[in-house]
Simulated assay, not measured.
Amino acid sequence: MNTRPYLFMAFILLFSQPVFADDKEQLTQLLHHFLQGVDSAAQHDRFWAEDLIYTSSSGSRFGKAEIMAGFAPADATEQDSTAAQTYAAEDIDVRLFDTTAVVAFKLVGSSAGQDGAELTYYLNTGTFVKRAGQWRAVAWQATKIPEPK
């Protein structure tokens, strides 16, 4: 009996798991890093693929070019108003499919309000593709979670 096919399969199974674990960790860290620097054009340029399809929670659909155009020089008032907004990811679920990944999570937006921090919640799902060794988001769906009544 030829054992080479079995040895090959055992080798693949043994050594493929850490790669997936590393990719999950890499995607999770990429998401956290992006959200911490969400006001940075460089962060957006690194995060989004050139062929991005983004569907916002308001129902608008656009691409990376429109996102990057939002970083054109703005007046000081706009910069001050957005600086108080911070974001964090909770309940992150990363699903890997070779060089494609789906990342689903709850986005928590926090801004300073008159009565303290005002929180908004979104369910986000991003599809990432690994190209030239880097994960980039090619599709994004954001859905605002309604406030409880």
Rank of each mutant, 00 (worst) to 15 (best):
A132P: 01
V102M: 11
Q141M: 05
Y87I: 08
Y122N: 07
A101W: 02
T120W: 04
P146H: 08
S111H: 04
T100A: 13
A89C: 10
A72M: 04
E78R: 15
V38N: 04
A112Q: 13
D39G: 00
I12A: 13
P18Y: 05
E118T: 06
V138W: 02
A65Y: 00
P146G: 15
G116R: 12
K24V: 14
T99E: 13
T86L: 02
D45Q: 11
R46F: 00
Y54L: 02
L35E: 03
A83T: 03
Q141Y: 00
D93L: 12
A84N: 02
F105W: 13
T143Q: 09
T120A: 08
Y6F: 15
I145C: 06
F71H: 08
A21E: 13
M9Q: 12
E66P: 03
G63C: 06
T82V: 05
G113P: 05
G126Y: 01
Y121P: 06
V138A: 08
R136C: 12
L123S: 06
A88V: 08
V94S: 13
A137R: 09
A72Q: 11
Q26W: 05
G37N: 14
I67K: 09
E90P: 04
E147Y: 01
T28Y: 08
T99P: 04
S111Y: 00
F20G: 14
D98W: 14
D75A: 08
A83K: 15
V108P: 01
R131C: 09
F34I: 05
M1I: 11
W140T: 01
A42H: 04
A142H: 04
D23K: 13
K24P: 13
A10P: 04
Q134D: 08
S57D: 03
F11P: 06
G133E: 07
G109I: 02
Q114N: 15
W140K: 04
E78A: 15
D115M: 12
A137P: 03
A88R: 07
V108G: 07
L96N: 14
G113K: 10
R4W: 07
G116M: 09
L35Y: 05
G116A: 11
F105H: 11
T127Y: 00
W140Q: 02
P5L: 13
D22K: 15
K149W: 10
A76M: 00
R4N: 08
F20R: 14
L119A: 08
